[in-house]
Design a protein around this nucleic acid. Structure first.
Lengths: 215, 215
DNA sequence: TCCCTTCTGTGACATCAGTCACTGTACTCC
DNA sequence: GGAGTACAGTGACTGATGTCACAGAAGGGA
């Protein structure tokens, strides 16, 4: 790993102790993903723990008919919790992970990540914290699917998207419909209604978000 | 803790190493729950890791309007993964845990459970395995809500229930409706349809399950 | 510039699920 | 055994969401 990566790593994962960061730098491999590249596919065997150093990943579920829906996003400094749990047993991934923007991921061989749990307190804490965070996000997603009508789910979705990538939501209605496991026409109508409240402005291939809390 | 508990504990948690079991026996407290008693409420501060030694618990989510829906069941030998994650930070519970049958739970003070992660390899493995299992079950629940119509969700629900408590499903239609976050009438109709296929027979306050795979 | 593709908007309609209103049935407690 | 209560069955209606069928708008490439 080159030295410029080192500095970036230190920044993104500053909660990890120095000797651990050194090991990561020495032992892991870097992968660059273009927008739309997959970091992990459903059914794939997991051999590494995935850390995100740059970019944005989405973690989602896909059913047998190709329907998908978004679980949550991963930002730089996050780890894919599932890839940590699968550690050491060559488990198959239950999820899809895809790059939303151009991204850079750090792949740590599973046996090392396993080893470090005992060796580095900060790694152990990081893993636990990651589990917890993801579990909570998943619960929120679950809530929104189980308890909320589609208009509220759309709001929840937009808010989350704004939080990770700003007020210009660069998505087509079709993409949004996919991630909510709905259909384009319905999303179009709901977005139109939102536009009428003044919360957003619609454009081709992107949505300008003004204020989602006024709704 | 009395000695008869000790033997039971050994049985249910045989994957844990002996010195750890001794510590558990010495340091934890036992609580007996009657059917319907709550082990954990949403918003409650978590001070202990919860292990289930006898009975059956259901873990579910509740929204602000009192709607609920089932996440998964815990059987003897299982632990409440959420209560492990909240460890050491006095976090609030995001979930409800309630006894389905008369149950016995083991409460381990959070600081100990935290300590043991480093001290006992088998504890560490147990915690990781618990996270993973619960995460997977949660994903399945999520799938069923997101991708399936209510009739299939009902099937999924019944199958899961049969797995943990046998072919006599002792529940009213109302209870099932609650756990699926639906309404009694709808569940009644779907059950009636199921009965017509021969998969089940309906009785007052319980459902006799013959074969859910023929549907 | 012109064609072609992709994205968006919209009406009409079908379907599933939730709600209301009511009936009937089984169990329980005096 | 009678009254009261919880549970179950059913028809009618409503609303939300998904589907179909188009039409129009925006952008991209030859």
């Amino acid at each position: 790993m080159e030295s410029k990566n080192k500095e970036e790593l230190l920044q993104k994962f500053s909660q990890l102790e120095q000797p651990l960061l050194d090991e990561i730098l020495a032992q892991s491999t870097i992968r660059h993903l273009k927008e739309g590249d997959e970091a992990l596919r459903t059914g794939q065997y997991i051999k590494s723990t995935v850390l995100l150093s740059k970019g944005l990943l989405k973690v989602y579920r896909e059913d047998e008919n190709g329907n998908e829906f978004l679980m949550y996003y991963l930002e730089p400094g996050n780890a894919c919790a599932l890839s940590m749990m699968c550690t050491a047993r060559d488990e198959q991934s239950q999820i899809m992970v895809k790059a939303v923007d151009e991204s850079e991921i750090i792949l740590i061989p599973s046996h090392l990540s396993e080893l470090w749990l005992a060796k580095y307190k900060s790694w152990h804490n990081f893993v636990i914290a990651s589990y917890r965070q993801r579990f909570e996000e998943l619960l929120q997603t679950l809530d929104s699917v189980a308890f909320k009508a589609l208009d509220e789910r759309l709001l929840f979705y937009l808010k989350r998207h704004v939080k990770v990538s700003g007020n210009e939501v660069k998505l087509s209605h079709q993409q949004i419909a996919n991630e909510l496991s709905s259909s384009r026409e319905v999303i179009s109508r709901l977005l139109k209604k939102l536009e009428q409240t003044g919360a957003i402005t619609l454009h081709r291939n992107y949505i300008e978000v003004h204020d989602l809390d006024i709704v």
